[in-house]
């Protein structure tokens, strides 16, 4: 499975990673050879095999609905690259409704 440079750029954008032309070239080659290796999996017939998403048979791990104090607001935003008035600050966002 070979990845084209366009596909690498697309995956880069989806991953929010800016790539230089050199990187696109290099990653295209490296990712293609990894995907070639991964194609081994197609040698296996997995029809009817239930995917194993959770390694342990645990379920219904629940906590009671009891509030506990969180972080001091100074600590909450203290590690942020930019903050003001208790808010995290980011470059101006044009609201495109991406939010859930």
């Amino acid at each position: 499975m070979a990845l084209s440079k366009d596909e690498v750029l697309k995956v880069g954008a989806l991953s929010r990673i800016r790539l230089t032309d050199d990187e696109v070239e290099r990653f295209a080659g490296q990712l293609s050879s990894i995907l070639d290796y991964v194609d081994k999996l197609n040698e296996l017939d997995t029809s009817g095999v239930e995917p194993l998403a959770h390694a342990l048979p645990l379920h219904n791990v629940l906590r009671e609905d009891e509030p506990r104090p969180g972080l001091d607001p100074q600590k909450a935003v203290g590690g942020a690259p930019e903050s003001a008035g208790g808010f995290f600050r980011v470059p101006r966002v044009i609201d495109d409704g991406s939010s859930a």
Partner: peptide, 19 residues
């Protein structure tokens, strides 16, 4: 930020997983 902050192997794996 992610370009500057992550090294090559991390970028490779993030991209592989995203794909």
């Amino acid at each position: 930020s992610r370009e500057e902050g992550f090294g090559d192997e991390v970028k490779r794996r993030i991209m592989l997983g995203t794909y």
